Amino acid sequence: MQKSASSRPLVGVALVIGSCLSLPFGAAVAAQLFPVLGPWGVTSLRVAIAALLLLAIVRPKPRGWNRAQWAAAALFGLSLAAMNASFYAAIDRIPLGPAVAIEFLGPLVLAAVLTRRLADAAWVGVAVVGIGLLGVDGLIGAEPLDPIGVMFALIAAGFWVMYIRMSARVGALIPGSGGLAMGLAVAAVLLVPVGIPAAVTVAGDLQLLLLAAITAVLSSVIPYSFELAALRRLPQRVFGVLLSLEPAFATLAGWLVLGQSATPLKMLAIALVVVASVGTTLGARRRRDEGGRTDTGPFTAPIPLPD
């Protein structure tokens, strides 16, 4: 049975939360591979394994695609490769929670640019304060943030914006998950030069290969599939603010898996980003129930390609 229009936002919210839960725990597992494979090697293996899994499951048929569909899938793959490589380089140098908080500046700026309502702008402001507190905690904490790690996180933030835009574009132009599978395949090819040494290393170590596969499933297959489906149900500005939940889950994953600290200031910051996420979601739901215009999806008008 087809879901009613009123249920679509709730399903989209659930999908984003599932993605936010999966991604940081995958990153925490990946961080344990860095001493052996390095961040670039882990990135390449993760993306390659995820691409192989999705290609086998989805079995896309790109032969009939037009030029716009191929361009969208290629740019989507480029954004995936660059975003993941720079983010893994960041968490090799700075803790997971602050790294995700800094990276989140990308979708946060996108949400601010796309919003047209004062209430939405206010929730974005609350999220900004929360992200700022996470940054302050990183600066005044026992371990100052490595500036190179911060730089990589900022680069990842820029490519995260491109990822959101191209994910929406792929979802609009290519039915099902074929665009995601081909995008991951493009990303895997782009990362081959930095992934060959890591592939040689794991070839003779089943335990390392298993950890790499777990990382691929938690950090790529599950979250990207969920986010692609969510962007078919939510406007990009709501999607962008909902992603502010990710620093909270990243802090939790860093604490549980990697033993990274969770200070009171960090907990306050997490509370603020969660409040911002809940506020923007309830606002969109209320406007829909009242019959107002809610921009129910990112595809009501063509999504422009980045310059």
Results as ranks from 00 to 15, higher is better:
Ser225Cys: 07
Ile148Phe: 11
Pro98Ile: 06
Ser44Ala: 15
Leu245Lys: 02
Leu54Val: 05
Ser19Val: 00
Cys20Leu: 07
Asp295Val: 06
Gly195Lys: 06
Ala172Cys: 00
Val202Glu: 02
Pro298Tyr: 00
Gly141Thr: 14
Gly291Val: 03
Leu272Asp: 06
Val16Ala: 05
Met151Leu: 14
Leu134Tyr: 08
Gly254Ile: 09
Ala99Lys: 04
Thr201Leu: 00
Val161Lys: 04
Leu208Asn: 11
Gln69Arg: 13
Val170Ile: 07
Ser277Glu: 04
Ala90His: 07
Glu143Ser: 12
Ile94Cys: 07
Tyr88Gly: 03
Ala250Tyr: 09
Ala81Tyr: 15
Leu139Met: 13
Leu209Val: 12
Ala216Gly: 14
Ala30Glu: 08
Ala212Ser: 15
Leu206Trp: 15
Val36Glu: 05
Leu265Tyr: 11
Leu265Cys: 06
Gln69His: 06
Thr263His: 04
Gly292Thr: 05
Thr280Cys: 07
Phe299Met: 04
Pro24Glu: 00
Ala82His: 05
Ile222Glu: 11
Ala82Pro: 00
Val136Ile: 10
Thr115Asp: 02
Val278Pro: 08
Asn66His: 09
Val273Asn: 04
Arg293Asp: 06
Gly240Asp: 09
Arg285Cys: 00
Ile91Ser: 03
Ile164Arg: 08
Val161Met: 05
Thr263Lys: 01
Ala71Glu: 12
Val11Asn: 05
Gly291Thr: 00
Ala213Glu: 01
Gly141Trp: 08
Ile148Val: 14
Met1Ala: 11
Ala262Phe: 15
Val36Ser: 13
Ile196His: 10
Ala111Pro: 01
Ala48Gln: 02
Gly279Trp: 04
Asp205Arg: 14
Arg237Leu: 05
Pro197Trp: 11
Ser225Val: 01
Val161Asp: 04
Leu258Thr: 14
Leu206Val: 15
Arg165Ala: 14
Glu227Ser: 10
Leu190Ala: 09
Ala90Val: 15
Ser79Arg: 10
Val58Cys: 08
Pro62Ile: 13
Ile140Phe: 05
Leu139Glu: 06
Val113Glu: 03
Leu96Lys: 08
